[in-house]
Design a binder for these strands. Structure first.
Lengths: 197, 197
DNA sequence: CACTAAAATTAGAGTTACTCTATTAATCAT
DNA sequence: ATGATTAATAGAGTAACTCTAATTTTAGTG
């Protein structure tokens, strides 16, 4: 038994909320969609919504990609340069996305970038990511996770990746794998201003 | 006549709101301070508060530093590396602050770092600053502001500055000016892992 | 199957940040 | 002084939460 009925129902409800909410956000806009709208669409009470997500923003942000990338990063072999390692990890994860996952990801980034309230939340999440990336870098290099150089490097990496997300949101036809790869390569090369993407 | 009575009164009211609000935020906490509390302390109506600041967060964030940094950035001489130039601009502005300005900035930093709601807003502010810097740089070098290398570099700068804030959150006694300078210096040096801040 | 413990759902009331509109009061130019 | 701007305010409304207390649904046990 893959976890009781309760757990399965909860997962289904959670997924339904996320799906209907995204549909409404993209359709009517984030601010114009109320919790009541979402609750009605999912056929739950507004109270229940807050049992699953602490805030409206969290519906957009909770995704499963970050853990995947972090895991892939950790699984890379050898003493490779951290940036190169991250590059490999991202390539691995992105090329394995289902069309459905990729579509959802594009929708999310588009929403985040075009909605001020979400932009703030995205940047907040950034703090956590820096921690996680720095933590992984630390365990690999045998350093303290609070090491200044490590954290700073993690920050720069996430900075260029976030910028890439913004670029992607403005040009949905762009190849994300290639963009991410280019961004990290450029960073690795020391950010020269004369650079051919 | 340095602008009529009206203007002077407005400036005074604005300053009073900011002062009383900061006092209350530091005293009781950001979330625990209501608009009504602030209005009462300044002896204005809650409606008036929103005539001066569009949101509670803006009271903390509206400062005059960004224009100064941009101007200093623009005034830097020669063909210096953009990161070095930004670094110089920030250092120049920060070291020329009046004691009053510096105290306020420290209070702000402390608040931002200890208040989750404000962190997101602060990072947004950084993003805007870097965006502006990238734009300025673009017009200087005759490049498109959407130039890949330019944007990527702006992203890296944003990333290390935001990381600095995270570091500060864990060590509130740290010197923010020095941390920002170190972060940019490290980035400029190509993010070597063996680096002594 | 019946019964109970645990957990999920819900209703409802309350708080607060904000918005909008309309009214009153203060300042300015003449 | 007076009429025109502009600022301050009251008041009503919305929506995102929060908290509490009930009610329903599922799980486990005899």
């Amino acid at each position: 038994m893959s976890a009781g009925l309760r757990e399965r129902k909860k997962l289904k409800t959670r997924a339904a909320i996320q799906k209907e909410a995204m549909r409404l956000f993209l359709d009517k806009g984030f601010a114009e969609t109320t919790i009541e709208d979402i609750a009605e669409a999912v056929e739950i009470s507004p109270s229940t919504f807050f049992n699953y997500f602490p805030s409206k923003e969290d519906v957009v942000f909770q995704d499963e990609l970050d853990p995947l990338i972090l895991a892939a990063f950790d699984a890379q072999p050898g003493d490779v340069n951290p940036i190169a390692r991250l590059r490999a990890a991202m390539r691995q994860v992105f090329t394995q996305l289902t069309p459905e996952q990729e579509r959802l990801m594009r929708q999310r980034t588009q929403l985040m970038v075009s909605t001020p309230e979400l932009r703030g939340a995205m940047l907040s999440q950034f703090a956590d990511l820096v921690d996680q990336v720095a933590g992984l870098l630390a365990s690999r290099t045998g350093r303290d996770a609070r090491d200044f150089a490590l954290r700073n490097m993690a920050g720069a990496v996430l900075g260029v990746l976030m910028t890439m997300v913004v670029v992607m949101a403005q040009d949905p036809s762009a190849d994300m794998v290639h963009l991410a790869d280019s961004a990290l390569a450029h960073l690795e090369a020391g950010l020269p201003l004369d650079w051919k993407a």
